[in-house]
Simulated assay, not measured.
Amino acid sequence: MTTASSTSPLRIGVVGYGHLGQFLVERILSEGPEVGLELAFVWNRNADKLKGEVPPQLILQDLSSFAQRGCDVIVEVCHPHIVQEFGERFLSKSHFLVGSPSALSEPKLNQQLRRAAQQGGRTLYVPSGALWGGQDIQRLSDSGALKALFIRMSKHPSCFRLTNDVLSDWSEAEGRRVLFRGSVAELCPLAPNNVNTMAAAAVAAGALGFAGVQGEIVSDTELSDYHVVEVEVTGPDGFTVHTVRRNPAKLGAVTGAATYKSFWNSLLVCKGHGGRVYLC
């Protein structure tokens, strides 16, 4: 385990207290001193959910007053709407780890946050989540050699949170159904809570962007124990890579179990990488 340095610990603000937020808060409180992290605040849309779970002095009632807590890093783990409403303000005061990178599929917001990071000299961190090989995709893109990127995410229908009723009629005997195939830019608004891995891939594939990366989401009633993430990378002269990741997950779980640990490792990276977007 990494030990804390002699410098002051990084003060972390956690925005959102769902399953992932709870995991992060518990781990910062229990292991923070050992890894150089200190919890500055926790905010949740329903503050009553925090009572008895989070020390009272760490509960932030009004998110607009986040700057008073003097955070080094603010972590969003709730909803893209928070990224839209507070992203620029967070970056004006702190580094920002965006747990809902699907929000970045909106071109205007994407540019606003990139500009805010550059102007303030702070880092907009994008966690890899369930994406395997993100750094390799990024290097291929930066070198100009990335030609195409396709991602398929397959889950049990109970694990999807969609903005329309396309899955309202599913049954356990249904089997496999392709729900959508197209650009990640089109897919993110349809399933903002399910495709953050695809959004991270679109950030890594900077040369292609959200409009150039292709994605597919699949409902499969056979997947009762795990999610499946398939990534197909195409480079020059016949170069291809195809990875398949099976991420253990309970029925109804939006996020697979292994992604929690991945997110924690991403947080440990957030120590400042200049005014830019950084995949971690």
Rank of each mutant, 00 (worst) to 15 (best):
S143I: 06
E85R: 13
A148G: 10
E31N: 06
P33V: 07
M153T: 11
G32F: 15
A47D: 11
E38I: 11
L50I: 06
R152A: 04
P55F: 14
D72F: 10
V98T: 10
P107H: 05
G120W: 00
S143W: 14
P157D: 03
R161M: 09
W43I: 15
L39G: 15
E88P: 12
L149D: 00
F90I: 14
E53I: 07
D62I: 00
L131N: 00
K49Y: 02
V77E: 09
W132D: 09
N164C: 01
L162H: 05
G87V: 08
A103E: 12
L146M: 08
L140N: 02
F160D: 02
A47W: 01
G52E: 15
A47P: 05
T123G: 05
Q112K: 14
P56V: 04
D62V: 09
I74W: 03
L146S: 04
V35H: 13
R45H: 14
N44P: 15
P56R: 12
F66Y: 11
V126E: 01
E34Q: 14
S100R: 12
S154P: 09
R27W: 12
L124A: 03
G133V: 00
L29I: 07
V75I: 11
R89Q: 11
F41S: 06
A130I: 06
N164S: 04
L58S: 13
I137T: 01
S158M: 02
S154L: 00
A40S: 14
Q111W: 12
D48E: 15
T163K: 02
Q84M: 13
A145S: 03
L149N: 07
I82S: 02
L131T: 01
G87R: 00
S65R: 15
A103D: 11
N110M: 12
R45A: 04
Q118G: 10
L37M: 13
Q112F: 12
V54Y: 09
S100W: 13
P107L: 04
F90E: 03
G99L: 01
P56A: 15
S92N: 10
D136H: 11
G134L: 05
Y125K: 03
E76M: 04
P56G: 13
L97Q: 01
G52N: 15
S105G: 15
K108N: 15
L37W: 14
R139E: 05
Y125A: 03
V73I: 10
I82N: 02
V166N: 06
Q61L: 08
L37S: 13
L109M: 11
L104T: 04
A116T: 11
W43D: 10
Q84I: 07
Q118A: 14
L97K: 01
